[in-house]
């Protein structure tokens, strides 16, 4: 294995979980997420010379997103209304019955429309800066900010976070 490949592994493999998590939230499918991540690492390795040495994670996630978008283009005839809009709304009773465990939170994130889902995941789960997110999703920072605010409102309403965190413990 060449030194270049070794260096690539040292720099990029630590972000495998981030790449997978982001791909999983974009594709909302475990098998598709794995394929996207493998594709992303392959492209990242081939384009490694173009990495300018700034945030490796942001750079890798940009490629993950591009790979995801490429799969969308390839599959566009198969897109259904549910893929685009998410499953039908649950009743408030359904939501109240469930606990705020990972499955519920993940499900509610999955139901966010994609432009809001991706900025929320990049900010809250991957803890990237506005500037890094703007670079990844290729929109102005102002757009990132308004999408993020909207995403938080939607998700917060669905998870009823204010009721859940009773007594203002935050």
């Amino acid at each position: 294995m060449s030194e270049r490949t070794r260096r690539f592994q040292a720099v990029m493999l630590p972000h495998m979980n981030a790449a997978y998590s982001f791909a999983r939230y974009l594709a909302r499918d475990p098998a598709a997420a794995e394929d996207i991540v493998q594709d992303a690492y392959l492209n990242a390795l081939r384009g490694f010379d173009g990495w300018r040495g700034d945030s490796a994670k942001a750079w890798l996630l940009t490629i993950v997103r591009n790979c995801y978008l490429a799969t969308l283009v390839a599959q566009r005839p198969d897109l259904t209304a549910e893929d685009v809009h998410g499953p039908a709304e649950d009743t408030p009773e359904d939501i109240l019955i469930r606990r705020h465990d990972a499955a519920l939170v993940r499900q509610e994130i999955d139901r966010l429309p994609e432009p809001f889902r991706e900025v929320l995941v990049l900010r809250e789960l991957e803890e990237l800066s506005y500037k890094e997110i703007a670079g990844i999703v290729q929109t102005p920072i102002g757009t990132v900010m308004s999408r993020l605010a909207r995403a938080r409102t939607m998700l917060g309403d669905r998870l009823k976070v204010m009721e859940q965190i009773a007594g203002g413990q935050v």
Partner: peptide, 9 residues
């Protein structure tokens, strides 16, 4: 709290 991030298999 929910640890919503996924871990790569």
């Amino acid at each position: 709290q929910a640890e919503a991030s996924y871990e790569a298999p």
